[in-house]
Every structure is written in C-alpha cells, then in structure tokens.
Design a protein around this nucleic acid. Structure first.
Lengths: 206, 206
DNA sequence: AAACTCAGTATACGCATGCATACTGAGTTA
DNA sequence: TAACTCAGTATGCATGCGTATACTGAGTTT
C-alpha cells in the first residue's frame, strides 16, 4: 500500500509547518528555502520535490488559513443563527479573535503579505477576502430581511466590516491577552456603527 | 562655508530617494545596503556614514510619508472648511487618493510594513496612524457640534474611517486610473456609513 | 527476483550579502 | 600654511543563498 506517498505527505506537512513557525518570528518574506528545509530536517534539494519555490509554498499557506477561517466563520454563523444582529457580530468577532490568537502565525502571514511585494500573494489574499465579503453580504441581507429592514449597500457594508475586523484584528497579535478586551470592544462598536449606518431610515428628502 | 554638510545632505537625500524608488518594485524589506548604495552611486561603506542599518533608513522614510500626508490632510481640511460633512469626506478622500497615486512608493512602504516583521516599523507606523485618528476625531467632533449633532464614540468612528481609507486606499496601487473611480465611490460610501452610524439618534428604549 | 521509480542525500558552483579594515583627499580650522 | 576632520573609496572576508548535478536506497511494479 502507499507507504511512499504517505511519507511524502508527511515531509510536505513538516515543511509547511516549519515555514509557518519560522514566519512568525522573521516574517514569511524573509524565509529562505535552505532555512525551511533545515528546520524540517531535510536537504535543501528535497524542498524542490514539493514546491517550485518559496512563493508556491506561501500560496499553500494562504490557502490553509483561508480554509481554517472559513470553517470558523461558518460555525460561528450556525451557532449564532437564532440570536439578533448585535449578538451575532459580537459573537463572531469573539471567535475571530480566538482564531487570530490560536493561529497567529498563519494570520500574520495573511495580513503581512496582503500588501506585500509579490503580486501573486496579493491577488490570492484579496481573492480570499472577497469571498469573506461575499459571504458576509449574504448574511447581512438575510438578517436584514428577517428583521424587516433594508440595507443601503450591503456589499459595501460587508466590505467595510471585513476590512475593520481584519485590520484591527491584526493588532491583537501585538497585544497581551488582558489588553485584547479593549480591542474587542472597539471592533464590536465600529462594526455596529457600520451596520447601523447601512440601514435605510424613513424616507426623507435630502 | 558649510559646503561639506551640504554635500552630505545631498548624498543622504539621494540614498533615501533611491531606497524609495527601489522599494516600489521589490518592497522595502527586500532591499540591501549594497543595492541602495549602488543605486545612489556610492560605496556600500559610505552608507554607514548616514544610517546605522536599513531599518534606520526605513524609519526616516516612514517619517517622510507621515509628514507629507499630514500636510495634505491639513490643507484639505482647510480648503473644505465651509462645506458640509458629506462633501468634506468626499473631498478629503479624493485628495487622499491623489496623494496615494503621487507617492505610491512611500505609501506602499507605509502600508506594506504596517504589519511587517520589524517591531520598530510597526510601532512607528501605528504611532503615525494614531495621530491621524486623533486629528480626525477632533474634526468629527467639531463638525458635529456645528451641525448640532452628537456622536456616539467619535474616536472609534475616526479609527474606523482611517482604517477603511488606508486599507482600501492601498488597493488603488494595483488599479489602473480608470478603475479608481469605482474604488473612490466605495470608500466614500463606506465612510459615510460609519459617520451615519456614529450619530446619536432620537432617544429610544432598546 | 529483476527492473524501475522517485523522495531524499551529498556536494559543489557562483553570487550577493553585511561588515571590517585601511586609505584618500577635499573642506575646515587655527 | 600646517594640522585636522570626515564623507566617501578600495578591498577583502565569511556567510548564506538558489540551484544544478550525480547519487542512493527503500518502495513499488512486473
């Protein structure tokens, strides 16, 4: 049976994990093939059996984060299905911050490379972001419908929310746990502002 | 007299300018002392007469951007003193995007290194951001007062606005000019959402 | 059991890097 | 004009890099 492929997958995972861990301290951009290979107890040349170059490895990492985050958000959405908007956002933001803390390496990579030098990185990350925005847009529309409200530009609101949550969420990486409560409050408040501002009010000539 | 200091300043400026230009293509993090020195037609060792290392040079660059941006925003604020809120934000966002396009290198550095690997970079950039937030907070409060309105959390609103404008503004760097109109509209709409959402409404038990 | 595949090894290349050392010569001061 | 300062030069070293080449030996196929 495929003992061979199994071993290969193991090495591949080890390379990915080591790259992730190393990127936490130095940043992914500063990593070298040799460094990652050495950390994974493998010859530099062996690296090429798995990835063409560091960029290809990086894109795999981005994918991993996106998958993890999407799972998280899907769960949080499901779990909070019954609650009202304010609670949903607060709940989701809470889960998000937990995720950021648990996967700080992945997240640092995502946010750091979002405006980085590599085109393909930026493109990949923005694509993932767009998916988040899309999913949130649907959520907002659904919730609004339930509450018998209308939103002005649901997609814009979603974009603003995603931007705020990700950008401010990144600050959690530099904060001790006990200071993150304040950060969470800020994010929740700002997200609620956006949603409030997106709601159509009584018609009024202006 | 001081022909010497004059020459030194000239070389220093050349180093800074070259670093800036190079960082546009490869990203500042990927620059080397030798590379910058060569671009500035100077020996690598001469670099050390001006900066301890690349990081010190980088902090100078950050400072330059901040100064330029602050000047821009101050002007835009002054020029739009008489207009109403909506026009102010639109006007300012427009100037901001012009600045981003004109100083794309500086801006790329600012946004790219904002979540980068270097602590001192992040700290420096966040400090500048905080100043923007502070200034905008005062603006929002002033305008609200004039219009006889109250804002819920002016500082949070300002933080959200700055976050949106900078993060989405960064996308302008990857967009052809003719597609930036759409971007501008998105930013304006989202900023207005935030401000709208920050306004206190009629008291209402909830 | 013989032939084949292929993940990983061993080694070596040329190149760019940060940085140390000793030097030069125009500009300044006394 | 003699002594001094100091921005910039010339040179060289050790290190780490990406990658090419030839190889080995366990795992798989026939």
């Amino acid at each position: 049976m495929d003992k061979r492929a199994e071993q290969k997958a193991k090495t591949r995972k080890k390379l990915i994990d080591c790259a992730l861990e190393l990127s936490a301290t130095k940043g992914f951009a500063a990593l070298s093939i040799r460094e990652v290979a050495q950390a994974a107890d493998v010859t530099p040349a062996a690296f090429y059996r798995h990835f063409r170059d560091m960029e290809e490895l990086g894109l795999c990492l981005v994918d991993e984060i996106a998958v993890g985050l999407r799972r998280l958000l899907r769960n949080s959405r499901k779990e909070s299905m019954t609650k009202d908007v304010k609670t949903i956002s607060e709940f989701t933001i809470e889960s998000f911050l937990v995720f950021v803390n648990e996967n700080s390496n992945l997240f640092r990579l995502l946010l750091g490379e979002r405006q980085g030098a590599s085109d393909s990185f930026r493109r990949a990350i923005r694509k993932e972001m767009d998916i988040f925005v899309e999913e949130l847009t649907e959520d907002l529309e659904r919730i609004a419908k339930v509450k018998n409200q209308t939103l002005r530009h649901p997609a814009f609101a979603a974009e603003a929310v995603v931007t705020i949550v990700f950008t401010l969420g990144a600050e959690a990486l530099d904060l001790p746990k006990f200071k993150q409560d304040n950060l969470k409050k800020r994010i929740v408040e700002e997200v609620n502002m956006i949603i409030r501002g997106a709601r159509m009010r009584e018609r009024k000539s202006l």
